[in-house]
Amino acid sequence: MSETRFRTMKDLPAAHLLGTGTAMCAGCGGLEALHQIYDILGEKTVFINAAGCMTLLAIYPYTPFGGSWLYSAMASAPAGAQGVRDALDILLSKGRISPEEDLTAVVLTGDGSAYGMGLSAASGTIERGLDFIYVCYDNEGYGNTGQQHSGATPHGARTSTSRGRSGFPGFKKDLFAVWVSHRPSYAATVVGSEPLDLARKIEKAKGLRGPRLILALAPCPTGWDFDPAEAARIGKLAVETGVWPLKEYFDGRVTFTRAPKKRLPVEEYLEVQGRFAHLFHPRRNEVLLGDIQAQVDAAWREAESQGLPEK
């Protein structure tokens, strides 16, 4: 990333392109990431949205976009991107629009669609090699309907459909690996609380063609049960504890872009969120806490066994 124009935080955009006044919750980690992403992708974009929290970014007649937007449905936003991209290519090839009028197709989806209902459409679209960017704001549950567990919910988290003493019994699906198995042109994990890392990745993705994944962890005060003011701190803790490795896939290789030198204990991340409160109160659930730490450690051990991280 030596050629990046984002060498330090001071190089980040000072003015913001995404309109204010949207209906997202105060402290929304997804919006924190999206407005940074939009600053760099810019308005020569058409966002194709899958049903989720961010459906409500645009409510007639209000839109935060200076570029374009198309609401599709929960399952098929990548197919919407396919239709728009194909149509733009047709119009370009026939000279009905000029290259300056061209747009980048960007899918915007929550984890509920990305990890589940929309996975088939995404898989098909990557396999067809579509030139598009896929942005997933991952708040680890069906947030727009009140945080029921989704394919992205982490082990042990309380959701409105896993309220028991041990929380969600399943495990978070590795969507990054699912994408990488399709050999896309680019895939990266980001979080809004690490704006410099995010900016460099969006810049890199923007300069490429083909299917590109931006998977953004989206700390969610409403669904994860924490004070909105803590949104950025929780994002940072996700990175520092190793729960959310910041990495990218490019040219057939995975690189860790911000591997913590010494990972903080995972409970520092867990104990500040109401969705994990049952792991600490009324008494500590040592077994489950140990399991969660062990999963994080195992994931990093596996990465290290492959010679990673190297950055």
Binding site: A15, L18, T20, M24
Partner: peptide
């Protein structure tokens, strides 16, 4: 870090807050 992007910068390089749109999350 402001989720809503309501913090801008004035000509002197000082941040300012758009109170018409700040939701008060306190990030």
């Amino acid at each position: 870090l402001c989720p809503d992007g309501v913090i801008g910068v004035d000509e002197a390089g000082r941040p300012w807050i758009d109170y018409d749109h700040c939701k008060g999350c306190m990030v």
